[in-house]
């Protein structure tokens, strides 16, 4: 409860700070919307040249893409502070975070709620519900499984971001690490099934990004077995546990070398 209150406080502060620059808010929202629409346009256009992709219809591929954007945007909405962690390390300001009676992981992981992503996340959520209901006709159970797996995806995203933060403590190389994670996840703007082996296996299980991004739409379409759903939850909790363990290990080795 205490941590939720602290997170809310951080989020309100962060939102107030971000909203003081309304022009940047508008430009960012327009830019991000155009980026999403442009790839969507490419996908639609792709289907004018081919009937299906890896057995998926146009509607299914578009739904995969919308789901990717939902998870990606939600993860940026909550974990934007990770992108600023390097600054804290190299300036030595992370020492100040450690002296406060607050869990430092909450501060560096969730301390920068990105209000800029909020309207985009909201519009994508509407698009997901509208497009999914209209074109894929899922049952209520499928919708429930979909949102449960989206939540599961966010647990995996949390684990990834904790892992990046830990490596940041050891190496101070946060920027590229975050971008490697973003690059890898953006491979799943389209279903992992489109990639040939061994890429498909690696993306789905070795790095559980496939579980994080492609499992929710598969559950909605009714093409994901119960075993896979259970495996996905198992994978996410293992990832989160390992992430937290790794963070603890890295924190013990923090040398406060920032100036």
């Amino acid at each position: 409860m205490k941590n939720i209150k602290i997170w809310l406080k951080y989020s309100i502060n962060s939102a107030q700070q971000a909203l003081s620059n309304r022009a940047a808010f508008a430009l960012f929202t327009v830019g991000k919307t155009i980026r999403i629409l442009m790839f969507l346009f490419f996908l639609v256009f792709l289907f004018s040249g081919t009937k299906n992709l890896a057995g998926y219809s146009k509607d299914q591929i578009i739904f995969f893409y919308l789901s990717f954007n939902l998870i990606d945007t939600l993860s940026q909405l909550f974990f934007r502070e990770v992108y600023r962690f390097r600054d804290l390390l190299i300036t030595g300001n992370f020492d100040l975070v450690l002296t406060k009676p607050v869990n430092p992981l909450i501060r560096v992981l969730l301390g920068g709620f990105d209000i800029f992503d909020l309207p985009i996340a909201f519009f994508i959520l509407i698009a997901v519900i509208y497009y999914g209901s209209l074109n894929l006709h899922p049952s209520l159970i499928n919708w429930l499984l979909y949102f449960l797996l989206i939540f599961n995806g966010l647990i995996i995203a949390t684990a990834f971001n904790i892992f990046v933060l830990g490596l940041g403590i050891i190496s101070t190389s946060v920027d590229h690490l975050v971008m490697v994670y973003r690059d890898l996840s953006s491979m799943l703007r389209i279903p992992a099934d489109l990639y040939i082996e061994p890429v498909r296996f690696l993306l789905t299980f070795a790095i559980p990004l496939g579980v994080m991004i492609t499992f929710p739409p598969k559950a909605l379409m009714g093409i994901l077995s119960v075993q896979m759903i259970l495996i996905s939850y198992l994978l996410s909790f293992i990832s989160l546990a390992l992430g937290i363990k790794f963070w603890g290990y890295c924190l013990k080795h923090y040398q406060s070398t920032g100036s």
Partner: peptide, 15 residues
Amino acid sequence: YFLWRGIFVNSPQVF
């Protein structure tokens, strides 16, 4: 590379 390889599995020509 792998994205396009995947696309060409079903179609010999795209665009």
